[in-house]
Amino acid sequence: MDKDKFFSNDPRFKVAKKEAWIGVGLVLFNFVWWFAFAYGLGSKSPDEYTYILGFPSWFFYSCIGSLIVMSILVIVVVKYFFKDVPFEEEVQDIQNQSDKKSS
């Protein structure tokens, strides 16, 4: 049946699933960071704001900060946790490769 092709024991699918979860984790972290700084530091009158490089601190951490932090995180995650797998039908090849690595 067709479905089996979608959910076979193809080792590449395991890799894919893990990386999809990493994506979900990153978004959750991203959201918490963004939300906590924006509303944690921003929910008071502007007279009481502190400023960083001219920006209100809530904005600096929440928007500029999240861009920098997420960029670094994404680079680290992709470089160290994401695996190269072939997209074409060469399942044999990955097995060979991993055999070589382990030996």
Partner: peptide, 11 residues
């Protein structure tokens, strides 16, 4: 920027 390619991703 990252979520789409990670979730749709390799599968």
């Amino acid at each position: 920027g990252y979520f789409v390619l990670m979730v749709l991703g390799k599968k």
